[in-house]
Computed example of a mutant assay.
Amino acid sequence: MLLSPEQFLGFLAAAMLITASPGPDNLMVLGTGISRGRRQGMVFGLGCALGCLSHTLLAALGISALIAASAPAFMALKICGGLYLVWLGIQALRSRGNARVDGRQAPAESLRRLFCKGLLANVINPKVVLFFLAFLPQFVVVARGGVGWQTAQLGLLFTVQAALLFGLLGYFSGAVGQWLNRWPCAGLWLDRIAGTIFIALGLRLIVSR
């Protein structure tokens, strides 16, 4: 069973806004593109995005197992995940938006090494694991069945849009980096938008039954 149009479009919109907001991953992609070149930035960003696949697998297996074992356990996961999203939103709202990209020249590295660095940086990041466990259930409709398959589709969709956005960031890294450094308020407003989305999704996750 494929995602419904409402699930697909709602999740894609939220995922793109969250991915575009200033954070460690996209700032590293920008920094890599500026200091090493646009192709290197795109390859590093692709590694970061594909690292989401491991978190997708864990989330799909974990959420499915929870539902099969205990409905109250799944509800507890949703509530904890909702609280985590609200906390992320508050942190984003409190951010001063001082996102700057260091454009200093960096030592040359192979594309393969940069790809592996981006992949590893995402795979071993425990915050990304928590984010997936908190974010994906928001868009899972248990009544439709196939919860694991729904979760996998959502994770794949997140990975694809992240790969595209990170690729664009890497390609236009010079221009985007200069724009962020010139207009730091842009990062502030992106944080405000992302923070509002996090809090709204978190509260919805907590109150939904």
Rank of each mutant, 00 (worst) to 15 (best):
L164I: 15
V147E: 03
P107D: 12
R209F: 14
V141W: 05
K78D: 05
N98G: 09
F11H: 02
A163M: 09
L83S: 07
S21M: 08
P107H: 08
G167H: 08
F11C: 03
L119Q: 01
W149C: 10
G51D: 04
F166R: 01
G148Q: 09
A15I: 09
K117R: 15
R192H: 01
F44Q: 08
L46V: 11
D25A: 15
A162V: 08
S54G: 15
I18H: 00
L57K: 04
P184S: 00
G103Y: 07
M1P: 07
A65Y: 01
N122D: 10
L12E: 02
N122F: 03
R112Y: 04
G81W: 00
W87M: 06
S54N: 11
W149S: 12
Q161C: 14
A59P: 01
K78H: 01
P72Y: 06
Q153A: 11
C52A: 14
M1A: 13
P22K: 10
F44N: 02
I199M: 14
G41F: 06
V29C: 11
G37L: 08
F135T: 06
N98Q: 15
T159D: 07
K127L: 10
V29R: 01
L164P: 03
L66F: 04
I197Q: 00
V141Y: 00
L9G: 14
A92H: 05
L53E: 05
P22A: 11
G10Q: 03
P107A: 14
L130V: 14
P22G: 11
V141M: 06
T196I: 13
S35I: 11
S208Q: 14
W149Q: 12
V29P: 01
G51C: 06
L180C: 07
R112F: 11
A163P: 02
A162W: 00
M16S: 14
F198P: 02
M42S: 07
G45Q: 09
A121C: 09
R209S: 15
G103R: 03
